[in-house]
């Protein structure tokens, strides 16, 4: 009996020590992890929309700023509405408001949330604010985020984070559209495709093929199994001679997407997923713009 007590004591103490070590490390790293993730994300976004402005000071000079719009789905028994959390200019500065839209895209209600852009970024805080603003019997579920980039007060780009199923598991991407909905670029954020095969989707020679495609082109974009021509590859990998860039770019402007050798399915997943993602987002952006202009909302974006 004494033996068992001794063993139990020893195990408890070791578990406590181990737990406090892990908890301590977690507390230290959680903060850093969040900061690094946010920083990386922001770097990726700037890289996508303004590759010619690498430094922080360059961006400040252009007044480059990002505004996030969060979309929630509001369920009220059988009725479904959408709640868009968007930044609005006020005397005190920029605050977030929730615009409740019905499924046809008509504004039903504007609710104040009193969220600053910084607190809106934190999902728990945001969720709590949304829940507080809802009526009785309503439930809200976070759907997605869309980011609008502005420079000197002009809208210059849309950034669309998204995910779709790839060959193995989900592929997380970030797509960038310019103000006329032409694709500025595509970045693969996270994926679990096979290294050397599907994993090649993150390589410039694949993802840069989407760059510069217009909305109409994207709609009919196909995946072809032909090998990538050499000059096009150099162009995509940015190793082509400077004087050839314009010529090659023009020659391959209408090219379909060349599948990665041995990973046609992954290539197709990315192409189709991107198509679907962009189509939906553009549809929503247009509705939001209509709502803003019709109701004269002083939106900060």
């Amino acid at each position: 009996m004494k033996e068992i007590v001794k063993i139990a004591m020893a195990l408890t103490i070791s578990c406590l020590v181990a737990g406090s070590v892990m908890g301590g490390v977690f507390m230290v790293t959680a903060e850093a992890k969040k900061r690094n993730q946010q920083q990386n994300r922001q770097e990726t976004m700037f890289e996508l929309i303004a590759p010619e402005l690498p430094g922080r000071s360059d961006r400040a000079a252009e007044n480059l700023s990002l505004h996030s719009i969060y979309r929630y789905i509001i369920q009220d028994n059988d009725r479904t509405d959408l709640g868009y959390l968007a930044p609005v200019e006020q005397e005190a500065g920029v605050v977030y408001e929730m615009w409740v839209l019905d499924l046809e895209g008509n504004l039903i209600d504007r609710r104040r949330l009193g969220l600053s852009p910084e607190t809106a970024m934190e999902k728990p805080d945001r969720d709590a604010a949304v829940t507080a603003a809802l009526g009785p019997g309503q439930q809200a579920r976070y759907a997605d985020t869309m980011i609008i980039a502005a420079a000197n007060g002009e809208r210059i780009a849309y950034l669309l984070p998204g995910e779709f199923s790839g060959f193995k598991t989900f592929i997380h991407v970030m797509a960038a559209l310019d103000a006329d909905f032409n694709l500025l670029g595509l970045e693969i954020m996270d994926h679990e495709e096979d290294p050397g095969l599907g994993g090649e989707i993150e390589k410039p020679y694949f993802k840069n093929q989407f760059k510069g495609k217009s909305l109409e082109q994207l709609r009919d974009l196909d995946v072809i199994k032909e090998p990538l021509p050499d000059d096009y590859r150099h162009f995509l990998e940015k190793t082509a001679a400077r004087e050839d860039l314009v010529r090659i770019g023009k020659a391959y402007q209408d090219e379909d997407i060349h599948a990665i050798a041995g990973a046609t399915i992954s290539s197709r997943c990315v192409t189709d997923g991107l198509k679907r993602m962009v189509k939906k987002s553009v549809y929503r952006i247009k509705i939001l713009d209509r709502v803003i202009s019709k109701n004269h909302i002083p939106a900060a974006m």
């Binding site: 070590v21 892990m22 490390v25 790293t29 959680a30 850093a32 992890k33 690094n36």
Partner: peptide, 10 residues
């Protein structure tokens, strides 16, 4: 766990 958290963060 420690190295996992550290690597994931930094």
């Amino acid at each position: 766990t420690v190295i996992d958290l550290v690597l994931a963060a930094y």
